[in-house]
Simulated assay, not measured.
Amino acid sequence: MSSATMIETPNRRDFLFLTVGAVGAVGAAALAWPVIDQMNPDASTLAMASTEVDIGAIPEGQIVTVKWRGGPVFIRHRTKKEIEDAENVPLSELRDPQTDQSRVKKPEWLIVVGVCTHLGCVPLGHEGKYEGWLCPCHGSIYDTSGRIRRGPAPLNLAVPDYAFLTDTRVKIG
């Protein structure tokens, strides 16, 4: 018989190698699982990942501040005048040019992260030349669309991920 046609039959040693290898792999996985699992965020962090807000009670012209991921989010129920003012701003006047339509999903609702893009202060609503927000720390002024108009802030107020669940309910995050 030629060596190419010889087939070795498994012996006891082969069986022991396979068994020890399988037990070792299962043992390694059992030891690795707690280490990998502890890297997941804890329940309190997952709870802050999104928040739902009932916006039905917010009167037109008002700003409500909610907490999301440990920081403020401004929800502004804009008036027709505020919407018109925001839509009619020439992009050439803006330091960080964005149209109002690109910042809102429904024109009457503006949702922005309430942190100044200069040094992280919390701006005050219905303040400043444009009746938007005024950062009391260094004087950055934002319009009714949360766009930077004056002051040291380099960027517009950030727009978080959000979705309208119903006409009166919004999910942020």
Rank of each mutant, 00 (worst) to 15 (best):
V73F: 11
P34F: 11
V23W: 12
A43Y: 03
I36F: 13
V26L: 09
A49I: 08
S92E: 14
H77M: 09
L157K: 02
F17K: 07
E8A: 10
E127I: 06
N156I: 13
I111D: 09
G132C: 12
S92H: 15
A57C: 02
M6A: 03
I7Q: 14
V113R: 10
E127P: 09
V73L: 06
T5A: 14
C121I: 11
D42K: 04
D143C: 09
N156K: 08
G139K: 10
K106C: 00
L46T: 03
A29I: 04
L94I: 15
E82W: 08
E87K: 15
V66M: 09
E108C: 05
V66C: 08
R149C: 04
I36E: 07
H118C: 11
G27Y: 07
V66S: 05
V122T: 14
G21H: 15
V159C: 07
S145R: 00
V26R: 09
V64L: 05
V64Q: 01
G61R: 08
T51S: 11
P34C: 15
V170E: 05
L16G: 00
M1T: 08
I83Y: 05
R150F: 04
G56Q: 08
N88P: 12
T65S: 12
D167W: 13
N156E: 07
A29V: 02
G61M: 03
A22H: 14
L94S: 12
M6W: 13
G125Y: 11
